[in-house]
């Protein structure tokens, strides 16, 4: 199954709720306060958030007033445009000339960091690149073992220390090893941490400093992994992680469920961080480039 189909399939469940409702709202109806209220409900139920929803609804109200929107088709086109514009142009994760290209992966607990790293490693290896994983989650029980299994699956190398050791040291060693082995890509795993735990965020900052010291300019990508099931708190997560380690991209996981991941609109808008990747399943091939046009298209088709 191709990417588009899989994404569509995943989003079809979303769509049933989403666009089906939008259509039902507008077909054969005049756009009035009641229909806009229904639209508000639909957007909020997709975790788009009260602020972004209010903006969209307001904009729509204006358009309707001017008579630019009349039937459900123009509404659909309008919403598509509006939401794609919110997401901005697609900016997939590209490995630049840096060698090794260092990716730091961060996020709260249970969002799917390790799985995303495994899939990402699988992708790079299949592109003929050499990949080294750094087992930087030294806190959670068996996190190192979990990454080891993914390294084996993806045919990547791994650098690990004892459980409980300093994650910054793991990152340092991994970059040193990658340099001496001339490896193309280093992906650093970190322990999941709630953004509210300041000592843990300090630890992350230290990791970043150490990485930059061992290879100036690194990490070249700092990927924040966000669970699509998360509500408005995802924006707080993005804000605080961004403040701490300068997030350069978002990986949105678990899009194969019924959650709509609507919070990415707010993240993109408030923080200007591009969404790079989406996770649509548990297989090694279920990590896709995020393409805002396709994403919105699939959402509305």
């Amino acid at each position: 199954m191709g990417f588009f189909d899989k994404l569509k399939e995943g989003l079809a469940k979303t769509r049933k709720g989403f666009i089906g409702k939008v259509e039902a709202i507008f077909t054969g109806k005049k756009i009035d306060d009641l229909t806009l209220e229904e639209l508000e409900e639909t957007l909020i139920m997709s975790d788009v958030g009260t602020k972004a929803t209010a903006e969209i609804v307001e904009f729509l109200r204006e358009k309707a007033k001017k008579g630019e929107i009349r039937n459900s088709d123009t509404v659909r086109e309008f919403l598509k445009q509006e939401m794609a514009a919110l997401l901005g142009s697609s900016q997939p994760l590209v490995i630049t000339g840096e060698r090794p290209f260092v990716i730091l992966t961060v996020g709260v607990n249970g969002v799917g960091k390790t799985t995303t790293i495994g899939k990402l490693a699988g992708r790079f290896v299949s592109e003929g690149k050499s990949v080294l994983l750094a087992a930087g989650d030294t806190f959670r029980a068996a996190a190192i073992e979990q990454l080891e299994i993914w390294a084996k699956r993806a045919d990547a190398q791994i650098v690990k220390h004892q459980s409980g050791s300093d994650p910054a040291a793991v990152a340092f060693d991994a970059i040193e090893a990658a340099r001496s082995r001339n490896t193309d890509v280093v992906i650093i795993d970190t322990a999941g941490r709630l953004h509210t735990k300041s000592p843990l965020m300090e630890e992350l900052k230290k990791m970043r400093r150490v990485i930059d010291k061992s290879l100036p300019g690194a990490p070249h990508e700092t990927l924040l992994v966000v669970d699509a099931t998360t509500g408005q708190n995802a924006l707080r997560q993005a804000e605080i992680f961004h403040e701490a380690v300068e997030v350069t991209g978002i990986a949105l996981t678990k899009l194969d469920g019924t959650a709509k991941g609507g919070i990415v609109f707010a993240i993109r808008k408030e923080l200007r961080i591009p969404i790079r990747l989406i996770g649509v399943g548990e297989g090694i091939e279920d990590l896709r480039d995020f393409d805002s046009k396709e994403f919105v298209e699939a959402l509305f088709s």
Binding site: I44, M45, S46, D47, V108, G110, D227, T229, T230, G231, Q232, N233, A234, G257, T258, A259, K260, G262, I263
Partner: peptide, 12 residues
């Protein structure tokens, strides 16, 4: 259930 779950909590 994760306390950070959004609107979909109901569905799940």
């Amino acid at each position: 259930a994760d306390a950070m779950t959004g609107q979909d909590a109901v569905n799940i």
